[in-house]
């Protein structure tokens, strides 16, 4: 602790009680050594940028991030596993750049996860090829999951838009006895809708509601 506290707040009884309650589980920086990375560690800048992206997305950070992944891609051009890690990082960077604050929240988790796996691969001495490939496989799976989440999100949004445009200008349905169908009148156009088309519409709506429920269940799972 930095010793600038107000002594008038001393309370030995409480101190004793708290010492009992929280004993043997305290960590302080005094007994911790700080391990520094080796001087030639190539990911220092990228690490700083990955962590910065988690907090704030600015043009400067994004540009630096892309530049550093490109530099590292050149640096590791002969290592296929590391290159794949870097490709994922670059793809995530592009996605974040395009979507900024609207990016899927999981993409930042995956960005960190991919980076720290790469960090492990580069920093761990004597790491075997199979171990690095295993780490890469996990991150590829994570990336694929994210892509799926993003496309589901897009699908849901476009359906919401469709739904909105449908409800915005709802046509009036008028029964016409002369023909075996419904006449749909709207301000801008007139459509003839058969019974079959109406049934198809109903089925589409059912499917939409079903897919919405699936999406909601996924969201709930993520919340857990």
């Amino acid at each position: 602790m930095i010793d600038n506290h107000n002594e008038s707040f001393s309370c030995p009884e409480v101190q004793g009680r708290l010492d009992d309650l929280f004993k043997s589980n305290e960590k302080t920086f005094v007994d911790r050594g700080i391990e520094l990375y080796p001087d030639d560690y190539p990911l220092i800048e990228l690490k700083s940028l990955v962590l910065s992206l988690d907090w704030e997305i600015t043009d400067e950070i994004i540009t630096d991030f892309m530049m550093h992944t490109d530099n590292l891609t050149e640096f590791y051009r002969n290592d296929k596993v590391i290159l794949k890690f870097l490709h994922i990082l670059r793809a995530l960077g592009k996605y974040i750049d395009a979507n900024r604050s609207k990016a899927h929240p999981d993409c930042f988790k995956i960005l960190n996860s991919v980076f720290f796996a790469l960090d492990d691969v580069i920093l761990t001495k004597d790491i075997s090829r199979s171990e690095t490939e295993k780490l890469l496989k996990i991150e590829i799976e994570n990336y694929k999951k994210l892509r799926k989440l993003v496309s589901n999100r897009k699908l849901t949004k476009s359906r919401e838009k469709e739904q909105y445009s449908l409800t915005k200008n709802v046509p009036k349905i008028v029964k016409d006895d002369k023909i075996d169908c419904f006449q749909v009148k709207s301000e801008s156009h007139m459509l003839i809708v058969s019974q079959k088309q109406l049934n198809d519409l109903k089925n589409d709506i059912k499917q939409f509601i079903h897919s919405e429920f699936i999406g909601l269940r996924d969201e709930l799972k993520n919340l857990k």
Partner: peptide, 10 residues
């Protein structure tokens, strides 16, 4: 824990 203890005491 140190932070929590301090704020509780205060």
């Amino acid at each position: 824990v140190a932070t929590l203890k301090k704020i509780i005491i205060m």
